[in-house]
Design a protein around this nucleic acid. Structure first.
Length: 555
RNA sequence: GGACCUGUGGCUUAGCCUGGAUAUAGCGUCGGGCUUCUAACCCGAAUGUCGGGGGUUCGAAUCCCCCCAGGUCCGCCA
């Protein structure tokens, strides 16, 4: 509704002004939509913007009112559009339907890769920024009608995992002991790194292991596989706790075993940009990279980058749009990968980069053991949420309270992370992560629960779509924007837009809730407000679920 | 040394790509509001050289240049 009206207004303006760009902006408190095109036309027409705005308004206002129920007003140099008539009614009718915000199905197959942390220790609060950005994007793509596959790329043959395998033997560690596998692996990895730092000559043993794996040595491959599986099982548990899901786990080693990596190395070897020394590298100077992009070591083994190219070629052959979520430390290599894919004439991946999460005392590192694991965070959030639920709703049985607390905990964590733009580096703060107040996930859940409560008490009511009053209209107009937000998230790859939108909707509902009695109102007033509450509830539910947050009916 | 990201009230933060109407919110502070639909809430107030300096423009938080500060990267690691 909102999207189509905006497009139609743009069309009329384009037709009248003859300009391609009609400079539509958000009207803020003045209007639903505004155009600043009069400023831009002032110079060429040698006229004052105020006058131009008036002329345009005079010329198109009648048509817009008749065809679209849009009131057009010139406010100084601005042209304001106010949506009237049955706009709000149409919005309400759409918004009370299940699946509100779903966009028409697309036939563009999307593959989205996120998290892909190395299996050498548990996911920590830095990794889950990747997870939450990625999973939120994935949910938005599905809502926007795209066929989507979400993948986790498992680095199961890198140096890190060789160090783990080596450490297990040397420490006689039992990584199949009781407990969460990823944490057991971390203990081994941290210890092994201490030995390697103390005696750098030991790295030769790691190199030997990596070489054997690439040669296909079955015994060594088995030594790698066990801990990788143990670690991934731990990851899956953590990811489930965050409501994040992957459709497929893709193993790096597969691209060596099936020959894709050597195929691509030989293909690259024949390119004019190839640099053959002891190593095989690519010269990406034309793309602005000073250093060579090394793909094969002098001992003949492939580096990570080569396997990554093979992986991305495979993705490009099976999907139309390839998206990766990567940490800022991968910026250089990510752009080298994009350049290489471009050079090869393959689909160039779109990469969403996010900056680091650090601790007040410094950067996080699995190797050094300086990190807060996602499991710790989830557990602590769950504990705090349970305290909160128990003090607020002592009458509920323990099972119900636990279930609410779990939903609240995941909401607080996911929202705290997704609300900030990815370009901003952040310092992890327990207080912010466990915040259940305004600008938090639980705050939005609470708005939803209140709406549910009203509707439950109301019982059946005949829908009424004729809203009145600024409070009701403001709420409906914000509801109207939801589909546009979903569209924006997938075109701009900015999941935080949805987080902001949901919070604003909860805010507006909060004001409405306090200002306009619903159940106590009579007749049509009661019915139209109930209809509006139902539309809000449904929009909040769809928004929350797209954020990967439980839309709790009570809390 | 080079490259990329960030810098917005005491703290956290949106807006920047695509310039436009009094710069968005939260925390904290101050003042109000629960016999009324869940107070994880709402209403009001105070708090801003949008890091600094130049430039472009009718108009700059937004675009360009320089500088400063913080983060990240520059490996035959991943």
């Amino acid at each position: 509704m909102y999207i189509s009206i905006c497009e139609k207004i743009a069309g009329v303006l384009r037709e009248y002004t003859g300009r391609e760009d009609v400079l539509l902006v958000d009207g803020g408190e003045h209007a639903d939509l505004a155009s600043t095109v009069a400023f831009a036309m002032a110079k060429e027409k040698r006229m004052a913007p105020v006058q131009i705005a008036r002329e345009i308004t005079d010329a198109i206002s009648e048509r817009l009112l008749k065809e679209l129920n849009v009131r057009t007003e010139a406010a100084g140099p601005y042209i304001n559009f106010i949506f009237e008539g049955n706009y709000c009614a149409e919005v309400l009718k759409a918004a009370i339907k299940p699946g509100y915000g779903n966009l028409p199905p697309k036939n563009v197959r999307v593959v989205l890769e996120h998290t892909s942390a190395n299996p050498n220790g548990p996911l920590h609060v830095g990794h889950i920024r990747n997870t939450i950005i990625g999973d939120t994007l994935a949910r938005c793509f599905r809502k926007a009608g795209y066929p989507l596959e979400v993948e986790y790329y498992v680095n199961d043959m890198g140096r890190q995992i060789a160090i783990v395998a080596w450490g297990i033997d040397r420490q006689h560690a039992d990584v199949f002991a009781e407990g969460k596998g990823d944490h057991l692996i971390a203990d081994v990895y941290i210890e092994a790194n201490k030995h390697l730092t103390a005696d750098p000559s030991l790295t030769a043993e790691i190199d030997a292991l990596m070489q054997k794996v690439e040669e296909g040595d079955e015994a060594v491959i088995r030594r790698f596989k066990g801990p990788v599986k143990r670690c991934l099982d731990g990851f899956k548990e953590t990811l489930a706790g965050l409501h994040a899901h992957h459709d497929r786990f893709v193993y790096e080693s597969d691209f060596v075993r099936n020959g894709d990596t050597s195929k691509i190395l030989s293909r690259i070897g024949h390119m004019p940009e190839a640099v053959h020394e002891e190593t095989l590298a690519l010269d990406l100077a034309n793309y602005g990279f000073e250093k060579k992009y090394i793909l094969r070591r002098s001992d003949g083994t492939s580096v990570y980058a080569a396997r990554d190219i093979a992986f991305h070629i495979w993705k490009g052959h099976n999907f139309d749009r390839v998206i990766d979520v990567l940490g800022a430390d991968h910026k250089l290599i990510g752009r080298q990968l994009q350049a290489t894919m471009d050079l090869l004439g393959e689909i160039v991946p779109e990469i969403v980069f996010f900056e680091f999460v650090s601790l007040p005392e410094g950067s996080m590192s699995t190797r050094r053991g300086t990190f807060i694991s996602a499991d710790e965070l989830i557990e602590e959030a769950g504990r705090r949420a349970m305290e909160e639920v128990t003090s607020r709703r002592p009458e509920l049985d323990e099972e119900t309270r636990l279930s609410i607390a779990k939903g609240v905990a995941a909401a607080a964590i996911r929202y705290d992370i997704v609300k900030t733009i990815p370009e901003k580096s952040t310092v992890f703060d327990w207080k912010d992560a466990l915040d259940f107040e305004k600008q938090s996930g639980p705050y939005i859940q609470y708005a939803h629960a209140r709406a549910c409560s009203i509707l439950e008490k109301a019982g059946d009511f005949p829908p009424c779509y004729d809203l009145e009053g600024a409070g009701e209209v403001a709420l409906a107009k914000h509801i109207a924007r939801f589909p546009k937000v979903i569209d924006q998230v997938v075109t701009e790859l900015k999941p935080h837009l949805l987080a902001i939108y949901a919070r604003e909707l909860a805010d507006i509902f909060g004001s409405f809730y306090h200002a306009e009695p619903v159940l106590k109102a009579q007749g049509d007033v009661r019915n139209r407000r109930l209809t509006l509450v139902e539309a809000t509830r449904n929009t909040l539910k769809e928004a929350l679920e797209t954020l990967g947050i439980d839309a709790l009916r009570a809390m």
